[in-house]
Nucleic acid binder design. Structure first.
Lengths: 230, 230
DNA sequence: CTCCTTGACGAACGTCGTTCGTGACGAACA
DNA sequence: TGTTCGTCACGAACGACGTTCGTCAAGGAG
């Protein structure tokens, strides 16, 4: 009588929480696209069909993982409404960017998970506290959500590449990571300087990250712009 | 001797242009995810393997389709540098949003196709013409590219749903299209008003598009914010 | 004419998301 | 106690996918 996974007691029962956490861990490891149902199930020592007890489909699973990544985002408490808004946005971006390309999981539709909703609520609250009219608040939060998604998607894979460069056990990925900006730079370098004088002139600036300072700058642009509206 | 597709003269030869154009048409029809190599090939009356003569892989094909969508974007000539920058950005967003979720094709990496490069060049040129310092120009164009991608991705599927509602021949998709915002609204409606007072209060504003006016507002926010930097 | 290159593309492979059917287990009921 | 029902677990299988490899046909060069 061979040991069969169908024999119950040897494994703890699955739960939606366990499944979602496993999905997030697999995304960390291999990215959203490669995080197949089979991989997630394997991480749980089961088969892919088991996951469907807890999620309707792969999309739901990945969205849940996305929301889970935001569980640790704490609402800021220090400073005026603008400080708090900027801190909140930066924290959300950072939480997502901690997980490689996780932002891809919620890029095609408005995220509606519990954590994202509480963050949305807080953004709206802060905007209203800042005296911004309600119609503009609605549009502003829309823009901020765009900013969050696109920033997380920019920073996430970059963060990941940096981590992999720093990890000697992953030297095989080193060439790929170091080339993250190298590929873009190579394209820019190959352009005709006559036809592309601006890109040519700014090339070094376009391909060297700028890190936290750049991110803070971009967020400041958006918020200053919001404040500039009548 | 059955007629075989291997018999040459009955079909015009493929070309990269034809393959990319077919891909864009299929994306228009079914969206990026469903635009499989098989579907694109079928649109060309051939098999999927034929496409690999012209593109290395599916990613390259979709990116090329993305760039093709920008072929018709003309650089603005009227107004001061700010007018032209805003017009350019709006045109790029509109060109992408004309094609459903095409923006997904270039969401994970910086687009580097010929049309996108000429647009990037023009953005940089205009920013410099506006007297913005080079380091800030680099960051600004980065932010504008984020804005373009996320806006196209927001507007594209919405545009598509609207077109499908307006098309009586596609009545079967009507319920889905009409529910585009309905689903979000349903989630918001189901929230506890005590826990989510802001979302509850602003719900009508959050789920009714705002259309062109909102898009113009958001772009103005970004550009005003750029101008506000020292 | 022969040889080489290139375009064309079918067959096949490995992988994927998902469904369906079956088994195991526990709770409820008679 | 035995039976029934509901739920979790999950293997087998299906249809679809991206891609590779091998073969054929056509055209050009020598």
């Amino acid at each position: 009588m061979p040991a069969s996974p169908r024999t119950r007691p040897a494994k703890s029962a699955l739960s939606r929480e366990a499944v979602v956490a496993a999905a997030l861990a697999v995304v960390d490891e291999v990215g959203v696209d490669a995080a197949s149902m089979r991989r997630v199930a394997a991480a749980l020592d089961t088969g892919p069909a088991s996951l469907y007890v807890y999620v309707a489909d792969r999309r739901e699973l990945m969205e849940a993982a996305h929301d889970l990544a935001l569980a640790g985002v704490e609402l800021p408490t220090a400073g005026d409404w603008r400080d708090r808004l900027e801190q909140l946005v930066a924290r959300v971006v950072a939480a997502l960017a901690e997980h490689g390309d996780l932002a891809m999981a919620a890029i095609a539709a408005v995220p509606l998970g519990p954590h994202f909703l509480r963050i949305t609520e807080e953004m709206l609250r802060l905007l209203r506290e800042g005296g911004i009219a309600d119609p503009a608040c609605a549009w502003a939060v829309d823009l901020l959500v765009q900013y969050v998604a696109s920033s997380a998607l920019e920073q996430g894979p970059w963060n990941r590449a940096q981590r992999e460069i720093a990890d000697p056990a992953r030297a095989t990925v080193e060439a790929m990571g170091a080339d993250f900006a190298g590929r873009i730079d190579a394209v820019y370098a190959g352009l005709d300087p006559e036809a592309f004088p601006a890109i040519t002139a700014l090339r070094p600036l376009l391909t060297t990250g700028g890190g936290d300072e750049r991110d803070a700058w971009k967020l400041r642009v958006v918020v200053d712009g919001l404040l500039a509206q009548g």
